[in-house]
Structure formats: structure tokens, C-alpha cells
Simulated scan of single mutants.
Amino acid sequence: MIQLEQARTVIAAARAHGREHGLKPLTVVVLDAGGHLVAMEREDGSGYGRPQIAQGKAAGALAMGTSSRVLGDMAADRPQFIAALSVAWEGKLIPAAGGVLIRDAAGTLLGAVGVSGDLSDKDEEAAQAGIHAAGLAQG
């Protein structure tokens, strides 16, 4: 399981990446491998629904064992499947880039990070920067 201090490092580094690259205000959520909230920060000016979107990106990645970017690709190829998953999971799946699995050096799944606030590709870059800064691996 991801530790609170690791989650805080992921969040701080994701936010720092956002500031360094001029991204819109971000919301960053870290879930443990069981899908439980470990930490969340919403920057000033980040939109009302951003925590739920960030959590949905991370939760979808965990539930399907792949990044939310891949889930977005699946939604384009198999929209009925993703729609069915969304219904089954009561709308808690956001199939857009920005949700990334977090692993340790041995490849053990620790959890996932979800970022929302800018374009999905930029959200994903911030998530990846946070994981890297914490000395962890993505995927």
C-alpha cells in the first residue's frame, strides 16, 4: 500500500509540475491499491467537480489495471463496454488520461494517482511527474 508521505510527495510534485508548466489549477487524488482515498489536494481556482473527476480517473485505472488513458481508448473503440462499466460502478469511472497506476521498484501495485484541471494529456504528465518524484514507478 502507498504510504501517506509517499502520496503527499506525489501530490506536491504533480502540483509543482503544473506550476512549472503553466497548467490550469489542478486537483490531485491518490488512492491506495484497494481504492481508498489516501490524500487529495485541490489548488485554488480548480473547478468544483475536479475532485470527483481526479478520483474517477484513479479509480478506473485501479479497477481495470491500466491507465485511464487506455480506458479512454477503450471508450472510443468499445463505448458500450465502458458505458456498462460506468453504470456498474455508479459513474465512478472517468475514461480520460490523467489516472496512472503507482508501483514500487519491484512492480507491486501500491495505488493510483488521478489528476484533473487541465487538458487530459497535461493532467497525465503531472501525474507521471509526481510518481517519478516520489521514487516510484508507473504502470
Rank of each mutant, 00 (worst) to 15 (best):
S46T: 05
R42W: 09
L71F: 10
L37Q: 05
G114A: 07
V70Q: 10
H17L: 00
W89F: 15
A127Q: 03
G117D: 02
D123Q: 09
A75G: 12
V29K: 04
G117R: 01
V10I: 08
A84M: 12
L31F: 09
T108Q: 14
A33K: 09
T27V: 06
R19H: 06
R19D: 00
V100Y: 04
A16S: 10
L37D: 01
G114R: 00
I2D: 04
G72S: 10
E124S: 08
G34T: 08
L4Q: 11
D32A: 01
T108N: 15
K92Q: 15
F81W: 13
G45L: 07
Q128N: 12
P51S: 08
G114Y: 00
G22W: 01
V87K: 13
P51E: 05
Q6L: 04
G35Y: 03
G45W: 06
S86E: 15
D123N: 11
E125R: 12
G35C: 03
A84P: 10
D73M: 13
A16N: 07
L136V: 03
A59H: 14
V28A: 07
A12N: 06
A133K: 04
L23S: 01
A137Q: 13
K57P: 08
A63F: 14
D44N: 11
A58Y: 03
K92P: 10
R8I: 00
L71A: 08
I102T: 04
M64V: 14
V38I: 13
L119F: 14
G45D: 06
Q55C: 13
E125D: 14
R103M: 12
V113A: 09
E125W: 09
I2Q: 04
G135M: 02
D118P: 10
P25G: 00
